[in-house]
C-alpha cells in the first residue's frame, strides 16, 4: 500500500529552463536523432502465425528482458486431473465465488468415488466473459483450475466459447506437461499438474 512516505513531491514545477531548452531546437534535434537511431535497430515484432511466444520454463522468469517469454501470460483455463485421471475439482465453488466476472458455473453432485464427497457434475467457464485475472486459480484449494499459457483462444460462436468440463479437461490433456506459473502450493495437495506428472489417459466415463 502506498503510504505518505512513498510520495515524493517534486517541488519544482516552474524550474527555469535553460536557454537551449527554451529555444526548443536543440532538444528537437536530440529527439529526432533518437528516433532516427531507432529506425535502424532490431525489430521486436513477432510474426505471429509463423512465430509464437512460448513460455520460458527455465531460468529467471522475472527477467524483464526476456522479450519472447509467455511465462507470465494467463491464457485459457484447464481443469486438472488427479493421478487417477479423474477431475481434480471438488466442486467447492471457491472459484465461482472469487470470480469477479461471474463466468464460472458449477453444478455440484455427490461424487461417484468413495474417497471424495463432491465433484462437479457440470463445470462451465464462459471464456468470453472471463477477464483472465487468475483469481479462480488462486482461490482453488486443490489446484484443480489453472490458467495455461495458451493465448490463441478463438471460436466461431459464443456457445463454442463456453468451455464445459470435457473441454477444460482436454485442455489439461494437451498442456499437462507444463505447470503454469509454479504458484506456491497452498494445500500441498499432491498429484495434479506437477511438471513431472505423466499425462493421464483420458478416462471418458469419469468426467
Amino acid at each position: 500500500m502506498i503510504t505518505e512516505d512513498d510520495i515524493i513531491i517534486v517541488d519544482d514545477m516552474r524550474r527555469d529552463m535553460s536557454l537551449t531548452e527554451r529555444f526548443y531546437l536543440p532538444q528537437i534535434a536530440q529527439g529526432l536523432s533518437v528516433t532516427l537511431r531507432r529506425m535502424f535497430t532490431k525489430r521486436v515484432t513477432l510474426q505471429y502465425p509463423e512465430m509464437r511466444r512460448e513460455p520460458k520454463l527455465e531460468g529467471d522468469l522475472t527477467d524483464p528482458h526476456s522479450q519472447l517469454n509467455a511465462s507470465r501470460y494467463r491464457g485459457v483455463h484447464r481443469l486438472n486431473r488427479d493421478p487417477d485421471g479423474r477431475v481434480a475439482c471438488v466442486a467447492c465453488f471457491m472459484c465461482e465465488t472469487a470470480c469477479p466476472a461471474h463466468c464460472i458455473h458449477i453444478d455440484a453432485a455427490e461424487s461417484p468415488w468413495p474417497d471424495r464427497e463432491k465433484y462437479p457434475a457440470k463445470f462451465d467457464i464462459d471464456e468470453l466473459r472471463c477477464i483472465y485475472c487468475g483469481m479462480c486459480e488462486e482461490a482453488c484449494p486443490v489446484d484443480a483450475i489453472e490458467l495455461t499459457y495458451e493465448y490463441d483462444l478463438v471460436g466461431n460462436t459464443r456457445n463454442e466459447m463456453i468451455f464445459d468440463k470435457g473441454k477444460l479437461l482436454e485442455v489439461f490433456d494437451e498442456t499437462c506437461q507444463i505447470k503454469p506459473r509454479r504458484n506456491p502450493r497452498i494445500t500441498g495437495y499432491a498429484g495434479t499438474g506437477s511438471p513431472d506428472h505423466q499425462p493421464a489417459r483420458p478416462t471418458g466415463e469419469q468426467h
Binding site: E4, I7, I8, I9, V10, D11, D12, M13, R14, R15
Partner: peptide, 15 residues
Amino acid sequence: MPPISLLSPAKRVPR
C-alpha cells in the same frame, strides 16, 4: 498555480 502539495512542506524535495 503554486506547486501542488497537500502534504507537509518538509516532504518536498528539490529536483
